[in-house]
Simulated scan of single mutants.
Amino acid sequence: MTSRNLIDERALLSQFQSGDEMAFDRIFTMFHSSLVFFADRLLLKIGKEISKDLVLDIFLKLYDRREGFETLSNIKAFLYISVRNSCIKAIEKEKVNQKRFDLYTKNFDEFEKNVLDNIVQNEVYEELYQAIDLLPEPYRLIMGRLVTGDTPKEISEELGIPVSTINTQKSRALLLLKKSLSGAGIALLIIYS
């Protein structure tokens, strides 16, 4: 390297270290294109926009650490190593995203079926609960407890009435509910019969 180039490099480095924007622009212009090309080659299928964003992030890191560089060669080494490391992280992130996507698409039909089943089930339960709310008080109390999983014996013990009374009121409540529910609601009601 000639002494003139060495003086220019020292001046540029000194200006850069002091935060001079024009010096930063010169360094950016010197390395930006080749770094984007380098990142593109490493990232292959991920995309050019990611390469550009990644390189811009590295330049921001360079600017934040500008006082620690002694030569342009140190800056160049930092830039290339940082781009390489960022590309490796981006590739790993892409692999994780691809695994998630593959798992999602593999299970999509099952997932979609589960979602639809849950929606239908919730709507049927809502219809059943609304119909139970319209029952006369003793029937509403007993059916509400049965739907939440209590047994006639448990209800009998808690309310202090015979199990036969619970079963009789349950039967009457079921007759009233069958008149007000849709086919799906009746099917759910059969489960609690």
Rank of each mutant, 00 (worst) to 15 (best):
D53L: 08
I50D: 15
K61L: 08
L43D: 09
Q169K: 13
L175G: 09
Y104Q: 14
K113N: 11
Q169I: 12
I27L: 14
F59V: 02
L44I: 03
S73C: 04
A184D: 13
S73N: 10
V147P: 05
F108L: 14
R145A: 15
S73H: 10
D53T: 10
F31P: 03
R172H: 05
A39D: 01
D133W: 10
G160A: 07
L12A: 06
D8M: 08
A23R: 00
Q17I: 06
Y125R: 10
K178F: 06
N122C: 09
L44E: 13
I7T: 13
K52L: 09
V36G: 09
T29G: 04
D64G: 04
K170E: 08
L35E: 12
I191T: 15
K113R: 14
V83T: 07
S171P: 02
K178T: 00
K89W: 01
T2S: 15
R26D: 09
E70G: 15
E154C: 00
Q98F: 07
V36E: 08
L188M: 12
K95W: 01
K106L: 06
M30C: 12
L13G: 02
T165H: 14
L116V: 09
L13H: 04
L181G: 10
L56R: 12
I132Y: 00
N85P: 04
G185Q: 07
S182L: 02
D20F: 00
G68M: 03
I50W: 00
L72N: 02
K93Y: 01
I27V: 06
S33D: 13
T29L: 08
I142G: 07
L6N: 10
R172A: 12
G19E: 05
I81R: 14
N85F: 00
I186L: 00
E67D: 11
